[in-house]
Design a protein around this nucleic acid. Structure first.
Lengths: 212, 212
DNA sequence: ACATATTTTTAGACTAATCTAAAAATTAAG
DNA sequence: CTTAATTTTTAGATTAGTCTAAAAATATGT
């Protein structure tokens, strides 16, 4: 059985190497977990001991098959709880991340199986991220970052990259949510702004960072 | 903010002094929490420091007003989660205690408020125990232990004293649940057995321990 | 009331997770 | 290809929670 801290390290390694497609460095982990590099080194030794990661001194870490299995199940639990919080308890998408961060560490397969059934086996969470099934398989779907779209191209928002509260609150204010239709009216590579039309009505301007 | 361990000590002190109507001793706590007396003494010092308990060396402990407030809110969370697990996730009453034991430590008032609303403000949990409201007030109702009832007296089961899995499974097997009508057919003080009739149909014999 | 049994506390040690400061290894730059 | 900058690891300390063994305080039985 893993401790909450060990689980958080596994998640961090998973998300860093998924994002960068390479092994996670000590400093990357220290930043993401808001701790010191020394603490990270200590924990990496422990996780390597338990054969959850492949760790070579000074060379960063990757997850073993067992580590990936653990990280995926955590993601599954986190995302199912987020669905519960939004769909059943009527939280908004900007409020659920921190609470799910705690709920995901509750140890009970039976609980997660039943929660999944209760929520009707959802495939995506409130931010559009895919929910792995009990075997760790994700549902993939076609998606392109808004920042990659060309002028006059249309699309429907199916997910957001960041789960930061202030970013999501900003989208709320712009009236953008999952399912919103977005058309790129004009891109401006000089000052990095995007003019977009929302649900065929309001025309607004956003920065390239938001578009990403 | 309290740690999970501190919260468990507060709950234990609360339940012991509620049951015995006096202060909780170090040994009582050690037994209930399945730990050593030495560990209990250590923790009592810490809780006294935080002014959550009144602690006099060698004389046992009681909760302060602040301690009672904390313990009551924990009970509220525990019992609301049990209702959720039974009513929404279809667990049976013998399966929910351990999971709720973990869920109760999640820190979020907003979560509990919304859970309460989602469950339609239940007043009792799946074992018949009253759920304190947000202000810590319990709903009281008339109840007598089966072991105190006299021959030919009838009653409806509104609660069980123990939450132990094997006890509850035994009740399941006897077809006894909350709401079951029970009539005392005969009491036998010599060998301490009770003959009871269930829902006016099956007649069975139980021990005084179960009746209690 | 005094010896014995029981309960409780203290002392000292262990583990998990963390820290700072210093040392060692790696990477980058001229 | 050597020096400087950066990254990572080690060393040593700290805190929460736990333990066992021993000492101290309290309770009990005749």
């Amino acid at each position: 059985m893993l401790t909450t801290t060990e689980e958080n390290y596994l998640k961090a390694i998973f998300s860093i190497s998924e994002r960068s497609h390479k092994s996670a460095s000590t400093n990357d982990l220290a930043k993401q977990l808001e701790t010191s590099a020394a603490s990270v080194t200590d924990m990496l030794k422990r996780l390597a001991q338990k054969e959850l990661i492949n760790y070579i001194k000074y060379k960063g870490v990757t997850l073993t098959t067992e580590g990936i299995k653990n990280a995926t199940q955590l993601l599954r639990k986190h995302r199912l709880w987020e669905v519960f919080l939004v769909e059943k308890l009527r939280f908004s998408w900007d409020q659920v991340h921190d609470i799910a961060e705690h709920l995901e560490h509750i140890q009970s397969n039976e609980l997660i199986m039943r929660l999944d059934a209760f929520l009707n086996y959802p495939k995506f969470d409130p931010h559009g991220d895919p929910i792995p099934n009990a075997d760790g398989k994700f549902t993939i779907r076609n998606q392109t970052p808004l920042s990659y779209m060309h002028e006059s191209q249309k699309g429907v928002l199916v997910g957001v990259k960041s789960h930061k509260t202030d970013f999501l609150l900003y989208l709320n204010k712009l009236n953008i949510k999952l399912g919103t239709e977005i058309e790129v009216v004009a891109t401006n590579s000089y000052d990095n702004l995007f003019d977009i039309k929302i649900d065929g009505k309001n025309k607004i301007t956003i920065t390239a960072t938001i578009a990403q």
